[in-house]
């Protein structure tokens, strides 16, 4: 398991920028733990400390019994790490990169082929191509193959799906589900709120802190706002009109609808009249089920 205890990290002169502000959590075997938050929340600092690539100012990260700071050699043997930026050898071919990483860990592609098969088969037709000449999606698959080739106990994936299209993202998550079944602990960060539901537990992270840690369902059940959706035509103008309504606390676009949080005294019919007076006639106002994204926005 992973045990993180009161991790702190700051950067800059006199530690001005607090990247991590005393973070603690645990992750069990066979669990996918998602760290959900925007760029700059501290996700990469956290992952780099856990991958033994960065020293914390204080606190510890124990990876399956090994301290990421003190036992870094051991930790590096048992983790697979996929950094946010593509960091394979651009001038080596797909196959050469994979062989290189396998050799570093005293193993071979053949020995652990079963682990990477699902992913690697998709790029195997291009195994002679230079890594630098691959498309974004293929680079991502190669990076994951390289992170897996030594059969790690813990997989750390830093924003593996940023810039990846919806279909490839779904495939990627299906793959993580299969790796989890083999008992690998998976720690993954993302800025896509819809990916939260594919994790066993998630932490919502903002400004160096976990503002909530729970199952996706638990996060949603703890939502305390009253949420309605509003749908109509002229959505941009409708958004502005909604913000002018006294009982509306927040109002945001949510795909083809707007989501509004409202005071307890809110009456949908009164809003319908208010909108009709402003020229919005065929407007649908309905109670809405919150999503993780609504929860994040409310924090």
């Amino acid at each position: 398991m992973i045990e993180v205890n009161k991790l702190c990290k700051s950067y800059g002169k006199q530690g001005k920028i607090n990247a991590l502000n005393g973070i603690s959590f645990t992750v069990d075997e066979g669990e996918i733990f998602g760290v959900i938050g925007p760029v700059g929340a501290g996700k990469s600092s956290l992952f780099r400390i856990m991958a033994s690539l960065l020293l914390p100012d204080s606190g510890t990260a124990i990876m399956n019994g090994h301290d990421a700071a003190k036992d870094y050699r051991k930790v590096r043997q048992i983790i697979g790490y996929m950094p946010e930026r593509f960091s394979l050898y651009q001038d080596l071919s797909v196959e050469e990169n994979l062989t290189f990483f396998a050799t570093l860990f005293n193993t071979s592609i053949e020995e652990n082929y079963h682990l990477i098969k699902d992913i690697y088969q998709q790029i195997e037709p291009f195994k002679k191509r230079r890594a630098g000449a691959l498309s974004g999606g293929m680079k991502q698959k190669l990076a994951l193959s390289c992170a897996l080739i030594h059969k790690p106990e813990i997989l750390i994936l830093d924003e593996p799906t940023t810039g990846v299209d919806p279909v490839s993202r779904k495939e990627f998550w299906d793959m993580l589900g299969r790796l989890k079944e083999q008992g690998i602990i998976i720690l993954v960060s993302t800025a896509y709120m819809d990916e939260a539901s594919r994790c066993d537990r998630i932490a919502l992270m903002r400004e160096g802190e976990f503002i909530a840690t729970d199952t996706p369902r638990g996060i949603i059940e703890n939502y305390r706002e009253i949420l309605w959706s509003v749908e109509g035509t002229r959505m941009s103008a409708l958004l502005t009109a909604l913000r002018g309504y006294p009982e509306v606390k927040t109002s945001f676009a949510f795909g083809d609808k707007h989501h509004i949080t409202v005071d307890e005294s809110f009456q949908p019919d009164a809003l319908r009249h208010f909108l009709a007076d402003k020229g919005f006639h065929d407007v649908r106002v309905e109670l809405a089920e919150p999503t993780v994204e609504d929860c994040f926005m409310a924090m």
């Binding site: 925007p38 760029v39 810039g163 945001f252 994204e293 994040f296």
Partner: peptide
């Protein structure tokens, strides 16, 4: 891809 990796609230501000 102006909003890749961005906070949901910021994405919406950007779209406005």
């Amino acid at each position: 891809e102006p909003t890749g990796g961005v906070d949901p609230a910021m994405r919406r501000q950007f779209w406005e």
